[in-house]
Amino acid sequence: MSHGADTAELASAPSGPFHEATAAENNKLGIWVWLASDCALFAALIATYLTLHNSVQHAPTAAQLFDLRLTATATFVLLLSSMSMGIGVEALQRNDVPGMRRWLWLTVALGAVFVGMQAFEFTTYWHHGLTLSASDFGASFYTLVGFHGLHVSFGVAWILSLLIFSYRRPITAADAWRFEAASLYWYFVDVVWVVIFTVVYLMGKVG
């Protein structure tokens, strides 16, 4: 009752010398696993928001508060930062370190502007009475959008640390993955924002 092969038939050697996985390859896979896992993180936050966003109690509603012009501007800022990040990493590929630095500084600046706009937005809403404990719409909104804001802030810190690194040490080919990893994370944060922009702001405005 034997199917498949006897163990002996399976024995065969791989062709060519063995290439050990490099730190770069491991790190890149690691980053992707982390990003996949982060999807589930935001999924839980969005699920919370979807469950509770109609629970407004006596606090202001999404339709009353949201200013789409502000949010659309923030969206474009983040979108531009993705582009500058991409061009920066590409400059590094051409060994153009000063060019890379210029674009990364721009990315950091755009990221900081985004975080600043969010801080402004949050304080505005807060003054209009949408506090954490005022309603579950407020609680789930601040938690979801704030979590994304924390992601952006962490990304800004990460890119900043890369910039500092680039001034203190010559960048070798073996370091390039550090920049690629940060860029993947940065694009991912932008991807999440597209979801939040659609689900929270656009859908919230139409109710």
Binding site: M1, S2, H3, G4, A5, D6, T7
Partner: peptide, 9 residues
């Protein structure tokens, strides 16, 4: 005897 498996089973 080493048995790898059996489709039927």
């Amino acid at each position: 005897p080493q048995v790898e498996g059996s489709h039927i089973l």
